[in-house]
Write a protein that binds this DNA or RNA. Structure first.
Lengths: 149, 149
DNA sequence: GGTGTTACGTTGGCTCGGCCAACATTGGTC
DNA sequence: GACCAATGTTGGCCGAGCCAACGTAACACC
């Protein structure tokens, strides 16, 4: 009934450490994005869009890793706030062409700033060397488990 | 419209790397636990219980980090499978005393074995040194962001 | 010895990220 | 022209993490 410790099996299990730190990370990121009324998917889509230029929803899905069906809702949100435009592709009537608006671009940079400071809160206990080391290790894990990256 | 790459902003953002690798980690862990019809909470609760010995639900909540309300459902599941017993505490009629059964203990070791091999698939691309390094960094992050550990 | 505060178990509900199946519409191929 | 593949969309599911509320029971203080 006293101070909470997690079982020591868990405390050194990599998968546990990963999912727990990830929970803290998303909490920090969520509140950062929340100050601008955005969620993870909103940022991811805007960022993808800024990089690829105008694209169809299916393409955005592939590049962002967000499911086709979730893309729909995310674009709805962003379009409602005029951060993004959705227009039918005249050359392929199955597709919509999505492009980011100037307001969307401005919002993206705000979000990026918010995220930058979020990284700092997240990595506070690590010095620059350790931060790079962490990134290196995580990238290695990711490229190994990611079908394509 | 080609191979999927994530925007390069994201590919080096620690919070992104963390949440993405955590997603892969939980996928791997889920399928490992799934072979024994268990989920994360089931393992966490059994592991906590094995460590603390018989305890009330509130204590289990504190030690495992699982919310009081989720403890209820988890114990229901485990009790249905006789991996755990729930009995009223005669000394404090608000409480239930939960204890792990022999079958629960056996199941726990099965789950632990499943998880051990899951760690290997997760960490496949890292040599022992890098694995320790990763654990070290993640633990540092966790103890910093964890109210108590 | 009552009264107010705190703890416990439980119900019900919500969010977010990640998925999947199905279906109508349209495009491309044989 | 018949088949197959891709697109957008709807609706649903899951797991983990939360929170509010409520009845019951224990405890502390006066």
């Amino acid at each position: 009934m006293q101070p909470a410790d997690t079982p020591h099996d868990l405390r050194t299990t990599p998968s546990w450490l990963l999912t727990q730190t990830a929970t803290h990370a998303s909490r920090i990121v969520s509140t950062a994005l929340g100050t601008r009324h955005a969620r993870g998917y909103h940022y991811r889509l805007l960022a993808t869009l800024a990089e690829t230029g105008p694209a169809s929803q299916a393409d955005l899905s592939r590049h962002s890793g967000i499911d086709r069906s979730d893309i729909v809702a995310t674009i709805n949100d962003l379009a409602d706030r005029d951060l993004v435009h959705r227009q039918p592709d005249p050359n392929d009537r199955r597709r919509n062409i999505i492009h980011i608006t100037p307001a969307g671009r401005r919002e993206l940079t705000h979000l990026q700033h918010a995220l930058d400071t979020a990284q700092d809160t997240l990595l506070a206990p690590l010095d620059p060397t350790d931060r790079h080391e962490l990134v290196r290790l995580l990238r290695r894990l990711l490229t190994h488990h990611e079908p394509r990256d």
